[in-house]
Amino acid sequence: MRRAGTVLAAVVAAGVLLLVVLGAVKRDDQAFSLGAPPSGVAVDLKPRQEACQAPIAVPDGTDFDQVRLPVGTYTKPGPALTVTVRRGRDVLVRRRVAAGYRDGSTLRVDTGRSIGGRDLSVCLRNDGTVPLALYGSGAAVESSQLRVDGGDDAIVDLALSFGREPRSLLSLVPDVLDRATLFRSPRLAPAVYLLVLLVLVLGAAALAATALRRAEEDVPGRDAPAPAGGARDAEPGAGDAPAGPAAAVPDARD
């Protein structure tokens, strides 16, 4: 049991160490996304047409400096685009995307500054002479809507995502805990959820150790007593005399 417990403790420690190392080494550059997967063409943006997704709320404690969107060009070189980020009616950023990008590519537009807050809109205007497919999915984001050239709100949403300077996954743990407490009681701090996670990990290790101990206890013959007197007493050899009364020896004189 002691050896099995040592092996289990070593495995758990190695797993925790591996997670910490991967969290420190692996880096992520995505700030957040709208949550609309690129499952199909959300808008077929015609020349001189503009589509705007709004309102967009950046999660608290987060900002972005890059706008990303997968697009389709129908096998032709992509048309020039103008990407505008607004807060209400105020223009925060306006960037032009040069023509010639490939079909099925993801546009990555640097804003040149960090942007956060609420009531944002992202607009894309087709400045070329060929149509452009903007990918997204149907009504995936309840808090935001898509409008094309000031018309009625569409029942689709763009697959927008937002990037920022790469950060290690380990540095994102406080943000993850903070977002996990979105619907918590105000009396519970994010550290409580970290404590619960540790209790779950240690509890799983304790259950595994208990299972190993019981498995060893259930091994057949593990606790059977050894026969007294050694092996010869336990099982007579081939040359030993048979048990019981001595056999009669015939008399030669008879």
Rank of each mutant, 00 (worst) to 15 (best):
residue 56 I to W: 03
residue 70 P to I: 01
residue 146 L to K: 00
residue 251 D to H: 13
residue 162 F to P: 00
residue 19 L to T: 15
residue 221 G to E: 08
residue 49 Q to L: 10
residue 232 R to C: 03
residue 175 D to I: 15
residue 247 A to Y: 05
residue 187 R to L: 15
residue 235 E to C: 08
residue 157 D to W: 01
residue 220 P to K: 04
residue 211 A to S: 10
residue 27 R to I: 07
residue 167 R to K: 14
residue 35 G to C: 14
residue 243 A to F: 06
residue 141 V to H: 05
residue 92 L to P: 04
residue 178 D to M: 13
residue 161 S to G: 12
residue 244 G to V: 06
residue 135 Y to T: 04
residue 109 V to G: 02
residue 242 P to F: 05
residue 40 G to R: 15
residue 62 T to Y: 10
residue 212 L to Y: 06
residue 2 R to P: 09
residue 122 V to G: 02
residue 208 A to E: 03
residue 51 A to N: 02
residue 108 R to Y: 05
residue 9 A to T: 13
residue 105 S to Y: 06
residue 169 L to F: 14
residue 233 D to P: 00
residue 242 P to C: 07
residue 38 P to Q: 06
residue 239 G to Q: 12
residue 173 V to I: 15
residue 248 A to G: 07
residue 9 A to W: 08
residue 141 V to G: 00
residue 47 P to C: 10
residue 193 Y to A: 11
residue 239 G to R: 10
residue 110 D to W: 06
residue 109 V to H: 05
residue 98 A to M: 11
residue 161 S to F: 05
residue 243 A to C: 06
residue 101 Y to G: 10
residue 144 S to G: 05
residue 236 P to N: 10
residue 115 I to F: 03
residue 60 D to G: 13
residue 66 Q to G: 08
residue 150 G to M: 11
residue 140 A to N: 10
residue 11 V to I: 11
residue 142 E to C: 06
residue 26 K to P: 00
residue 16 V to S: 08
residue 120 L to D: 00
residue 160 L to G: 03
residue 238 A to D: 15
residue 177 L to A: 08
residue 46 K to D: 08
residue 186 P to V: 00
residue 253 R to T: 15
residue 223 D to P: 02
residue 108 R to A: 12
residue 216 E to T: 11
residue 191 A to M: 13
residue 218 D to R: 14
residue 119 D to W: 10
residue 108 R to G: 09
residue 8 L to P: 00
residue 123 C to Y: 01
residue 107 L to K: 04
residue 82 T to M: 08
residue 22 L to F: 06
residue 168 S to Y: 12
residue 11 V to K: 11
residue 85 V to F: 10
residue 198 L to C: 12
residue 223 D to V: 07
residue 250 P to D: 11
residue 83 V to N: 08
residue 60 D to C: 06
residue 107 L to P: 01
residue 177 L to H: 06
residue 237 G to H: 13
residue 94 R to C: 03
residue 7 V to F: 13
residue 176 V to G: 12
residue 189 A to D: 13
residue 84 T to M: 08
residue 115 I to Q: 00
residue 106 T to D: 09
residue 175 D to M: 15
residue 103 D to F: 05
residue 64 F to R: 01
residue 118 R to K: 13
residue 140 A to K: 09
residue 193 Y to Q: 15
residue 224 A to H: 09
residue 159 A to F: 08
residue 1 M to V: 13
residue 94 R to K: 13
residue 219 V to E: 15
residue 118 R to M: 03
residue 148 V to E: 00
residue 238 A to T: 03
residue 5 G to D: 14
residue 98 A to N: 12
residue 25 V to F: 03
residue 192 V to C: 07
residue 244 G to P: 01
residue 253 R to P: 00
residue 205 A to W: 02
residue 174 P to Y: 12
residue 55 P to S: 10
residue 129 T to I: 14
residue 49 Q to T: 09
residue 192 V to T: 12
residue 139 A to W: 11
residue 188 L to P: 06
